[in-house]
Protein backbone atom coordinates (compact mmCIF):
# COMPACT_ATOMS: atom_id res chain seq x y z
CA UNK A 1 0.00 0.00 0.00
CA UNK A 2 3.01 2.27 0.61
CA UNK A 3 2.00 5.91 0.86
CA UNK A 4 -1.40 5.50 -0.76
CA UNK A 5 -4.21 7.40 0.92
CA UNK A 6 -7.99 7.23 0.63
CA UNK A 7 -7.86 10.24 -1.71
CA UNK A 8 -5.53 8.41 -4.09
CA UNK A 9 -7.98 5.49 -4.29
CA UNK A 10 -10.90 7.85 -4.95
CA UNK A 11 -8.85 9.63 -7.65
CA UNK A 12 -7.97 6.32 -9.32
CA UNK A 13 -11.57 5.08 -9.08
CA UNK A 14 -12.80 8.22 -10.85
CA UNK A 15 -10.27 7.74 -13.66
CA UNK A 16 -11.09 4.02 -14.04
CA UNK A 17 -14.83 4.83 -14.16
CA UNK A 18 -14.17 7.42 -16.85
CA UNK A 19 -12.20 4.91 -18.92
CA UNK A 20 -14.93 2.27 -18.40
CA UNK A 21 -17.70 4.66 -19.53
CA UNK A 22 -15.77 5.71 -22.63
CA UNK A 23 -14.78 2.11 -23.44
CA UNK A 24 -18.29 0.66 -23.14
CA UNK A 25 -19.84 3.61 -24.98
CA UNK A 26 -17.40 2.99 -27.86
CA UNK A 27 -19.47 -0.10 -28.80
CA UNK A 28 -22.25 2.33 -29.82
CA UNK A 29 -20.17 3.43 -32.82
CA UNK A 30 -18.10 0.29 -33.37
CA UNK A 31 -18.61 0.24 -37.12
CA UNK A 32 -16.19 -0.54 -39.91
CA UNK A 33 -15.02 2.20 -42.24
CA UNK A 34 -14.44 0.84 -45.72
CA UNK A 35 -11.41 3.00 -46.43
CA UNK A 36 -9.82 2.77 -42.97
CA UNK A 37 -8.75 -0.48 -41.36
CA UNK A 38 -8.85 0.69 -37.74
CA UNK A 39 -12.43 2.00 -37.90
CA UNK A 40 -13.98 4.71 -35.75
CA UNK A 41 -13.03 3.02 -32.47
CA UNK A 42 -9.34 2.38 -33.21
CA UNK A 43 -8.01 5.75 -32.07
CA UNK A 44 -10.16 6.27 -28.94
CA UNK A 45 -9.58 2.71 -27.70
CA UNK A 46 -5.81 3.09 -28.19
CA UNK A 47 -5.89 6.34 -26.20
CA UNK A 48 -7.89 4.55 -23.47
CA UNK A 49 -5.38 1.67 -23.40
CA UNK A 50 -2.46 4.07 -22.98
CA UNK A 51 -4.45 5.95 -20.34
CA UNK A 52 -4.86 2.71 -18.33
CA UNK A 53 -1.08 2.13 -18.45
CA UNK A 54 -0.34 5.70 -17.37
CA UNK A 55 -2.92 5.43 -14.57
CA UNK A 56 -1.14 2.33 -13.26
CA UNK A 57 2.13 4.28 -13.40
CA UNK A 58 0.47 7.12 -11.49
CA UNK A 59 -0.84 4.74 -8.81
CA UNK A 60 2.63 3.19 -8.51
CA UNK A 61 4.19 6.65 -8.14
CA UNK A 62 1.64 7.57 -5.46
CA UNK A 63 2.29 4.30 -3.59
CA UNK A 64 6.01 5.13 -3.55
CA UNK A 65 6.00 8.91 -3.10
CA UNK A 66 2.51 9.91 -1.98
CA UNK A 67 1.45 13.19 -3.59
CA UNK A 68 4.99 14.52 -3.95
CA UNK A 69 5.75 16.44 -7.12
CA UNK A 70 8.74 15.61 -9.32
CA UNK A 71 11.66 17.98 -9.82
CA UNK A 72 11.54 20.15 -12.92
CA UNK A 73 7.76 20.07 -13.32
CA UNK A 74 6.11 23.28 -14.44
CA UNK A 75 2.76 24.55 -13.19
CA UNK A 76 2.97 22.48 -10.00
CA UNK A 77 -0.08 23.15 -7.83
CA UNK A 78 0.67 25.43 -4.93
CA UNK A 79 -0.39 24.07 -1.58
CA UNK A 80 -1.60 27.33 -0.01
CA UNK A 81 -5.01 25.78 0.60
CA UNK A 82 -3.63 22.83 2.58
CA UNK A 83 -3.20 24.92 5.71
CA UNK A 84 -6.34 27.00 5.25
CA UNK A 85 -9.05 26.91 7.88
CA UNK A 86 -12.05 25.40 6.14
CA UNK A 87 -15.31 26.39 7.84
CA UNK A 88 -18.66 24.92 6.76
CA UNK A 89 -19.80 28.37 5.63
CA UNK A 90 -16.76 28.77 3.36
CA UNK A 91 -17.26 25.29 1.90
CA UNK A 92 -20.93 26.04 1.14
CA UNK A 93 -19.82 29.32 -0.41
CA UNK A 94 -17.34 27.68 -2.76
CA UNK A 95 -19.76 24.86 -3.71
CA UNK A 96 -22.40 27.50 -4.50
CA UNK A 97 -19.81 29.40 -6.54
CA UNK A 98 -18.99 26.25 -8.55
CA UNK A 99 -22.67 25.47 -9.18
CA UNK A 100 -23.83 29.01 -9.97
CA UNK A 101 -22.26 29.26 -13.48
CA UNK A 102 -23.67 25.84 -14.39
CA UNK A 103 -27.16 27.02 -13.36
CA UNK A 104 -26.63 30.21 -15.37
CA UNK A 105 -25.51 28.25 -18.45
CA UNK A 106 -28.50 25.92 -18.10
CA UNK A 107 -30.87 28.90 -17.82
CA UNK A 108 -29.56 30.64 -20.95
CA UNK A 109 -31.73 28.64 -23.35
CA UNK A 110 -35.13 29.16 -21.67
CA UNK A 111 -34.49 32.51 -19.94
CA UNK A 112 -32.09 34.14 -22.38
CA UNK A 113 -28.95 36.24 -21.92
CA UNK A 114 -30.66 39.58 -21.35
CA UNK A 115 -32.78 38.40 -18.39
CA UNK A 116 -30.44 35.90 -16.74
CA UNK A 117 -27.23 37.95 -16.82
CA UNK A 118 -27.95 40.71 -14.24
CA UNK A 119 -28.98 38.11 -11.63
CA UNK A 120 -25.85 36.08 -12.37
CA UNK A 121 -23.53 39.07 -12.06
CA UNK A 122 -25.13 40.16 -8.78
CA UNK A 123 -24.95 36.62 -7.38
CA UNK A 124 -21.23 36.30 -8.28
CA UNK A 125 -20.41 39.63 -6.62
CA UNK A 126 -22.30 38.62 -3.47
CA UNK A 127 -20.73 35.15 -3.32
CA UNK A 128 -17.31 36.80 -3.56
CA UNK A 129 -18.00 38.68 -0.35
CA UNK A 130 -19.57 42.02 -1.31
CA UNK A 131 -22.52 42.57 1.02
CA UNK A 132 -23.31 46.28 0.43
CA UNK A 133 -26.49 46.16 -1.64
CA UNK A 134 -25.91 49.53 -3.31
CA UNK A 135 -22.46 48.45 -4.48
CA UNK A 136 -23.80 45.11 -5.73
CA UNK A 137 -26.56 46.81 -7.73
CA UNK A 138 -24.29 49.58 -8.99
CA UNK A 139 -21.51 47.27 -10.21
CA UNK A 140 -24.07 44.87 -11.73
CA UNK A 141 -25.58 47.77 -13.67
CA UNK A 142 -22.17 48.98 -14.86
CA UNK A 143 -21.04 45.52 -16.07
CA UNK A 144 -24.43 44.75 -17.66
CA UNK A 145 -24.51 48.10 -19.48
CA UNK A 146 -20.95 47.62 -20.75
CA UNK A 147 -21.76 44.17 -22.09
CA UNK A 148 -24.99 45.31 -23.74
CA UNK A 149 -23.27 48.38 -25.17
CA UNK A 150 -20.33 46.47 -26.61
CA UNK A 151 -21.84 43.24 -27.84
CA UNK A 152 -25.43 44.21 -28.62
CA UNK A 153 -25.13 47.77 -29.89
CA UNK A 154 -21.58 48.08 -31.24
CA UNK A 155 -20.83 44.56 -32.46
CA UNK A 156 -24.41 43.36 -33.09
CA UNK A 157 -23.48 39.95 -31.70
CA UNK A 158 -26.43 37.53 -31.60
CA UNK A 159 -26.96 36.44 -27.98
CA UNK A 160 -29.45 33.85 -26.60
CA UNK A 161 -32.94 35.39 -26.39
CA UNK A 162 -34.74 32.72 -24.38
CA UNK A 163 -37.77 30.68 -25.27
CA UNK A 164 -40.09 31.28 -22.31
CA UNK A 165 -42.38 34.28 -21.85
CA UNK A 166 -41.92 36.90 -20.34
CA UNK A 167 -38.13 36.51 -20.78
CA UNK A 168 -38.40 36.18 -24.53
CA UNK A 169 -40.55 39.35 -24.63
CA UNK A 170 -37.91 41.20 -22.60
CA UNK A 171 -35.20 40.11 -25.07
CA UNK A 172 -37.36 41.29 -27.96
CA UNK A 173 -37.80 44.64 -26.21
CA UNK A 174 -34.03 44.98 -25.74
CA UNK A 175 -33.35 44.21 -29.40
CA UNK A 176 -36.03 46.67 -30.55
CA UNK A 177 -34.56 49.38 -28.33
CA UNK A 178 -31.07 48.65 -29.62
CA UNK A 179 -32.25 48.91 -33.23
CA UNK A 180 -34.01 52.20 -32.54
CA UNK A 181 -30.90 53.63 -30.86
CA UNK A 182 -28.70 52.49 -33.74
CA UNK A 183 -31.07 54.10 -36.24
CA UNK A 184 -30.81 57.37 -34.30
CA UNK A 185 -27.05 57.48 -34.98
Amino acid sequence: MGKLTKLHFIESAVWFSLVAVFYFYSFEFDREIEIYKFGATGWPRTVLAILILVMIGNLWHQARNGSAAQVGRVGVTDDEMENAEKSVGSLINIIAFLLLPLVYAWSLKPVGFYSATPFFIAAVIMLLGERRLQRVLGITLVIYSMLIGLFMMVLNAPLPQGTVSPFYDFSAFMLRTSNQLQNLF
Binding site: V47, L51, V54, M55, N58, R73, V74, V76
Partner: peptide, 19 residues
Amino acid sequence: SVGGNTIWKGWMSVLLGLM
Protein backbone atom coordinates in the same frame (compact mmCIF):
# COMPACT_ATOMS: atom_id res chain seq x y z
CA SER B 1 7.01 16.32 -19.84
CA VAL B 2 6.70 19.84 -18.50
CA GLY B 3 3.12 20.12 -17.18
CA GLY B 4 1.53 18.58 -14.08
CA ASN B 5 3.05 17.46 -10.78
CA THR B 6 4.48 14.23 -12.23
CA ILE B 7 5.14 12.74 -15.65
CA TRP B 8 2.15 10.44 -15.03
CA LYS B 9 -0.21 13.31 -14.35
CA GLY B 10 1.23 15.22 -17.30
CA TRP B 11 0.41 12.31 -19.61
CA MET B 12 -3.00 11.67 -18.00
CA SER B 13 -3.85 15.32 -18.72
CA VAL B 14 -2.77 15.06 -22.36
CA LEU B 15 -4.64 11.75 -22.80
CA LEU B 16 -7.78 13.24 -21.25
CA GLY B 17 -7.53 16.04 -23.81
CA LEU B 18 -7.12 13.47 -26.59
CA MET B 19 -10.24 11.64 -25.34
